[in-house]
Nucleic acid binder design. Sequence first.
RNA 1: GGCCUGUUGGAGAAGCGGCUUAACUCACAUGCCUUUCACGCAUGCAUUCAUGGGUUCGAAUCCCGUACAGGUCACCA
Length: 548
Amino acid sequence: MATYLDLANLLFPDVTKTIDDLEKEYPLRNLPEGAQVTRFAPSPTGFLHTGSLFTAFIAYTYAKQSQGVYMFRLEDTDTKRTIAGSADELIDQLAEFGIIADEGYFPGSDKGAYGPYQQSVRADIYKVVIKHLIAEGKAYPDFCSAEDLQKIRDFQEANKILPGYYGPYARDRKLTVDEQIEKIKAGTPWVIRYKSMGDHDKKIKFKDAIRGELELADNDVDIVIMKSDGLPTYHFAHVVDDHFMRTTVVTRGEEWIPSTPIHIQLFRDLGWKGPKYAHLPVIMKLDHGNKRKLSKRKDPEAAVSYFLKAGYPPKGLLVYLMSIANSNFEEWTIANKSLDVSKFTFAFKKMSLDGALFDEGKLNYFCKEVLAATPKEELLKAVKEWAEKNSPTLLKKMNDDMEYFSKILNIEKDRPNPRKDYAKYGDIEPATWFFYDDEFEKHPELPFNEKYDKEFLKAFMSEVADKMLYGAGESEWWNSVKEVAAANGFAIANKDYKANPDAYKGNISDAAEIIRIAITGQKDSPNLHEVIEILGKERVMKRLKNAI
RNA sequence: GGCCUGUUGGAGAAGCGGCUUAACUCACAUGCCUUUCACGCAUGCAUUCAUGGGUUCGAAUCCCGUACAGGUCACCA
């Protein structure tokens, strides 16, 4: 009679390593007390999702603040869904946020002593563990076809029995080793299932770093641990990888809560100390009154690339995500006058349990704060980098005259309360068009106040052009404007105008508006004096004289 | 449908048995400042914590039911 070991050897004749060998190959990490080892482990099945960025950011932050290690592991075991090139894109985009792994998969080569960090090339490692499990009678080959499984499911549904491959419904669990060997030799396709000893009627408890004590029914399903293509399923890969990579905290989405008993069972039966778990809330969106997960297909903001393309500063997005993660972060930013997420101490305990609604308004707010607080040179550099990738027109303006652009970008920036005009780099061009003659010349009809006739406007603007001061300080310049305004019948003090509006052609604000419209083409603009100084005498005179 | 989780203002949330006539931030509104806008400043915005019971001298805070919402039940992760 054949033994489990015979079966194991038949299934995996080439596997000679043992679990002990692996333990030696991937020794316990020598890290300072309290240091945490975390990981971000995405599948290369598409672009970086906003929710994934959140998860990665939390894992990164937690490792960093504990002087630990943050890893990037590629979970590419689903070969059908893998999209070529998406892994590298994931890494590139993460890098834009400064989330760079200490170890892990990198395009071309891995970094770190606990690799490989790409599951598809770790097949041999999984096989060592699976062979061991089979030799111990804890896992077995299953020969069910898709149709066989469907039949079981149909029967269960028809009889209102809990669906799944477990207990009496685990058909091939009952096969003897001899029968198994016979089928294998006959070439019947197989997968490997884990022989669960769990009791569904019993509860198992575990502590989640965010949610506290959780109680779920124990797993009794004989889950597939190795697929017919020889690669492991998520459940198994997670357990093996996080054990041998010596992960201390597993951060993942809350959708994994229901399968945690499977993972705990696996860790326990293998005699391994499992990691801590932190199941993160998922970012949601309001859709017709209902909350739902941010969807890559329906919501542009579900893709991180959307924010990058629009020119949101990555730091702003991070600040926003941190405000969702730990709401006391906002108070911290105010108390510490800092938007530096790396200086804030993040805590799982302060996370809320249900998924936050994605709030673009608040994102905009934080991004404005971030851009306003970014020093000139740094800002200019960031804008340029963005323009190089995303805006040829802006890039041309910058390259044509960087000094000019820099002045425009930094209007009223040196003040105690700088302007907060831009949430994203993409906002810059639409707000500064009038500084560029070719665009200004295409301006729509100038929105002058209709109470002034053209004759008057023309004369007034011409006089302003000739008499106002150029290159002077703001108050001198303003005085020169006021002089001309007064000479043309405008009240130069609000009080006077309010007391007797009929005695004047208008208020000084009306005069300023005329000048502003002629120079900028619009009623609203940043500080007029600065605008005029940036444009220069020649351009300003031309615009004033040609407005009508 | 079973199981798990959650429910404090438009949004993020603090509070976890008396100090709460529910903090703080965004949004919104109004006003001030001001040559416009932005900035800044000030004020307003839940008599109420999904809902119905209960425990208690006292509940947003504890217990039970109900409703609603989210998650999950694959050879996908």
